[in-house]
Design a protein around this nucleic acid. Sequence first.
DNA 1: TAGATTGTTAATCGATTAACAATC
DNA 2: TAGATTGTTAATCGATTAACAATC
Lengths: 215, 215
Amino acid sequence: MPSRKKKMISDHVITRLPAYLRVLNELAASDTERISSQGLGKIMGLTASQIRQDFSYFGTFGQQGYGYQVVALRNEIAKIMGLDRNYQAVLLGTGNIGQALLEHLDFSVSGVHIKAAFDVRRELIGTDIAGVPVLDAHDLMTYCQAEGVDIAINCVSAESAQRAAEHAVEAGIRAIWNFTNTVLTVPDHVVVENIFFSDSLQRLEYYLSDMLDSE
Amino acid sequence: MPSRKKKMISDHVITRLPAYLRVLNELAASDTERISSQGLGKIMGLTASQIRQDFSYFGTFGQQGYGYQVVALRNEIAKIMGLDRNYQAVLLGTGNIGQALLEHLDFSVSGVHIKAAFDVRRELIGTDIAGVPVLDAHDLMTYCQAEGVDIAINCVSAESAQRAAEHAVEAGIRAIWNFTNTVLTVPDHVVVENIFFSDSLQRLEYYLSDMLDSE
DNA sequence: TAGATTGTTAATCGATTAACAATC
DNA sequence: TAGATTGTTAATCGATTAACAATC
């Protein structure tokens, strides 16, 4: 509650944090105890300078002449990212993508708990997918207000995407993980993170066609 | 064959191209015939300057005093991205993510044709998913060499990810769309585009926790 | 101690924005 | 024509890299 306003950190830095985490986890898994910024840079394809610069936005985690303790650093970064918290989530739209996420992704490692999924299709309501109950989309608001939900995972069709997002915002959620291939408009107090499959595929096609051209 | 080496264009620009395409498609769908860099900027949250700068890397598409023809510009950008070509793809690993992609994504709009899926699980081989035959992973090499495959969509488990990528590269594919949450190591002549679900979710958690802290 | 490596300040590089002549 | 808007060059801003004193 102390309204502690952190200094604004660039998106570039934030985007690298999960990559640091990934590598540190691998190092920890292979029992590597310590790593220097230079060593980390070599693995990740970054300069040692950039790594030290990145970390310095959040504090000091290393030791001169020694480097960083892998496990300690890993834990610090996880904490910086807020992964030590617990988040309650609901999933909107149990089409293929929604189902795939429920069945495939291990949300517990990220501290995210999926409490329920919502759909409008009568035949799905009342069933459950990977242990998650599918409820009537009309009950979203009541449910979220009663249960306190932080995150909505938006997997509805592109046409319903904005509407679903608005319902979720009305229901009090604070973050949307967006799989709808649609840009959502939300109030300032709501965070949106997009997975745009088609953008990614198009990028792949650009680099591929470029590669094919230049030979 | 003309080995025409295009000038190197920054990743930032390439990443914006699909967004331009998305907006131009919407404008075209709503029968908007022309748009200025200023108008486009307003919709996309970019400066008019940046938009003109971006386009200028590829050529000149506008008209002074008028702006850009929406449909013509859309087509130009699609061409720049290589979306007018046809790509042959195979999908590796028919777990949930693989299945979801086969059933959910409309690849034809991107000029990508999924010819076959591959898996090691006996019980799946010989079946088909959304009209795509599931073949034995051991036949990948022979298949690709016979059929001429450009893209591998890597949906195997994290543990098999690097191995699957290497097989695909050996089999002559030139691009990997990577859903394995793993950094792949490939030769220079192969393009990799990643969809890292966990990176995205962690980013969401960072911004969410930040938001929750500052209130 | 000597060698290694941090955290941080300064220099460089690249990307975005501003300005403006050209021209539809 | 006058107004609008491009394409491009120059100015600014921000991110990355280099350098180095501090110190383990």
